[in-house]
Design a protein around this nucleic acid. Structure first.
Lengths: 231, 231
DNA sequence: AATCGTATTATGGCGTACCACACACTGTAG
DNA sequence: CTACAGTGTGTGGTACGCCATAATACGATT
């Protein structure tokens, strides 16, 4: 074997993302970070102009986002940015709890220094972002923490599900993490997860993960109902 | 108020499914029941002819199925029917276990005669379908059983997730239910779930649901590896 | 004859133009 | 003041064309 080629390490790494994928990312990002607000209409031809692509592409993007739950399609009236009602949000948190709990348990059961180290690295990232008041960083590192939880035990499908659901509550997440004391409690709860994993305590890791999500859910519910009554 | 119109009881019941939705259902069905086999190419222009719709519609349908995981898109080569590898199937079963277990626990915790009755009705449907050797009926009624489990406690989002994942393993399901003795063991396991719910035993319902899925997963794994080695 | 370069084909990616239909709005006539 | 017709906006859907790329077939050169 000629050594250098036995793995694909030198592959040219095609940036050949199709226009459709680029547009998809743009619009999704625009929705999750609030450029388009829930209830806003997404007029195809307007999007064409804003994105600089054709209607064909825009339509495919809208379909895709629809199946992700970020966009709602009203028959004969066109797509709008999906509204998140409180009931749905609670269910999403509940599902995340079940799946993240499952992943945490698996991590604990096959606990290893690598897993613990990777999780602690993400956790440090979160603490640093809080310290620097970098809320976008907090979100990113939190995602990274959970991604580690799932991928360390090769649960890519479950991670995909969690990721899919998470984008739908993204603006909620960005509100919960700004809550008073969350900068201390959040990392503390995650630290409990890591501790349980370190000592191989599956049940403890499961419960700790559930509790963390439950706390986030409670805050989200409070925020959401506060916002609702303010309208 | 003019009385007869105050509720929408006589509403025309929108036949207003768009062409796109019809086409989507057709293609999805064609994939899950094996008309298109894993690995088959899905040539856009051919599908246009077969479905009698335009390329725009076909493309949107393919994108949608891609995000459902039923279709895989190879860059610059076009879409094929997704191949299901054994690892992914196991993960899907695992997730179903976590979510169905969660739903079963919730049903048990707020146990009511309605819930039990609805579940038993679905269970009877399964038994009858087995008796009549109606395998399509078994699948439909099994879905119905789980749908009841989720919707009785208003977990529509979780049901959506399970449903989404289930279509990806549909042909596996149709193989597992044909397995010897499954016609007896399957309903027996589900009956244990209902029993636990009836007596309000959340933990028992959770475990029974997990066990049922685990059994299905084991059979699926056996079937899949047998098929693999046969190739 | 084997190999290498080139033409062809198949197909996806993308854009444009067009029509039909549903809905909201608006101004006008009764 | 209301009913209604006209109008504009926007989606649903179709047809067609162009370009880029991958695979294959074919032909030329050594």
């Amino acid at each position: 074997m000629s050594g250098a080629f036995k793995d694909a390490a030198i592959r040219v790494e095609r940036p050949a993302k199709t226009l459709r994928e680029l547009a998809l990312d743009k619009v999704r990002e625009a929705i999750v970070n609030g450029y388009f607000r829930p209830g806003d209409r997404l007029v195809e031809r307007d999007l064409c102009a804003q994105l600089g692509v054709s209607r064909t592409v825009v339509r495919e993007v809208l379909r895709h986002l629809e199946s992700e739950g970020l966009v709602a399609n009203r028959p004969n009236k066109g797509p709008i940015v999906a509204q998140l009602d409180i009931e749905e949000a609670k269910q999403i948190y509940e599902i995340r709890g079940a799946l993240e709990g499952m992943a945490a348990r698996l991590c604990a059961e096959r606990s290893s220094p690598e897993i613990v180290a990777a999780l602690e690295e993400a956790l440090t990232g979160i603490r640093n972002s809080y310290r620097d008041n970098d809320m976008a960083g907090v979100l990113a590192n939190t995602s990274s923490f959970y991604q580690t939880l799932f991928t360390m035990v090769d649960r890519h499908v479950a991670w995909g599900v969690v990721n899919l659901l998470t984008v739908r509550i993204n603006h909620l997440r960005s509100m919960t993490i700004k809550t008073e004391r969350r900068g201390i409690e959040g990392p503390a709860q995650m630290s409990k997860i890591v501790d349980a994993i370190r000592r191989g305590d599956g049940e403890g890791a499961y419960r700790a993960a559930m509790e963390h999500v439950a706390a986030a859910s409670a805050i989200a519910e409070a925020v959401l109902s506060a916002k609702k009554s303010a309208e």
